[in-house]
């Protein structure tokens, strides 16, 4: 017995609809977020993450209402990311029913924001999202703006710094792999997981159930995140958990 590894279905939400693109472009509609969240909850998802890709401030109110509607019906942890730039954004999402927020670009531009957020709301609700691209052998760098903008920051060093600043968890997305279904970038996952003492969620590239198991067994991830393999009915969350359990990974199956 012990702590189970987690499966986290991820919903990219734009104007109140779940969408999914390839390498952050080529958007495809995948349905109503409340219905989808309920379905994953019923299938045994350990948490659910929403990434709000909505551009404008006005449309963000839609996301707050969506989180409220989901929190009324889904009793597992909810994380909301996308556009979290100020303490008031965190307050709004937590008040709407989110348990954690995921901070991405704002952490890169102002690392002290992570420190302030952890101090105010507690590390347990602060996830720092890292979008990394491989730039050389054993070197990955942080990119912002959906992978378009390089920063020159070393991803492993950045993860160590964010943990030090009070992040409770790291959501690591490989921008090379996102949406292409060839599996996680296990190199960067392992490098970051070994370097820090807070949980790491592996994301980007899942195309089959074995990829999920590899993220834990070879990447050392504490949780694995996937979107499209669940949205379009290829696999259920339960099938994914059963596959991982059969690979010898501790999972919640009750």
């Amino acid at each position: 017995m012990g702590l189970a590894k987690r499966i986290i279905p991820c919903l990219d939400v734009d104007k109140g609809r779940v969408v999914k693109g390839v390498n952050f472009v080529g958007i495809r509609d995948a349905g109503d977020p409340v219905e989808i969240a309920k379905r994953y909850n019923d299938q045994g998802a350990d948490e659910i993450t929403f990434l709000d890709i909505t551009a404008s401030h006005e449309e963000r109110a839609t996301t707050v209402h969506m989180v409220e509607a989901i929190a009324e019906q889904v009793f597992i942890p909810l994380t909301v990311g996308g556009g979290i730039r100020e303490l008031v954004d965190i307050r709004n999402m937590l008040n709407a029913g989110a348990d954690k927020v995921s901070i991405n670009s704002a952490a890169v531009y102002n690392p002290d924001f992570v420190r302030a957020a952890a101090d105010k709301f507690g590390s347990q609700c602060i996830v720092v999202a890292i979008d990394a691209k491989q730039v050389a052998d054993n070197r990955w760098e942080i990119f912002t703006h959906g992978g378009r903008k390089p920063t020159g920051i070393n991803a492993v060093e950045w993860a160590i710094k964010m943990a030090d600043f009070g992040a409770g968890e790291i959501l690591l997305t490989s921008m090379d792999r996102d949406g292409v279904k060839t599996g996680f970038d296990l190199g960067v996952t392992k490098a970051i997981s070994d370097a820090i003492n807070i949980p790491v969620i592996a994301s980007g590239g899942v195309g089959n159930l074995e990829h999920l198991a590899e993220g834990v067994l070879k990447g050392g991830a504490d949780a694995v995140l996937a979107a499209s393999i669940f949205h379009f009915g290829e696999y259920t969350v339960l099938q994914a958990k059963q596959h991982m359990a059969a690979a010898g990974i501790e999972m919640r199956l009750d």
């Binding site: 012990g2 189970a4 987690r6 347990q124 003492n197």
Partner: peptide, 20 residues
Amino acid sequence: GDNLVENGERLKVPHMGWNQ
């Protein structure tokens, strides 16, 4: 603690997730 170990496996802190 920062050096938590169980059955030879390093345990992350916070203790986050589903446990028995």
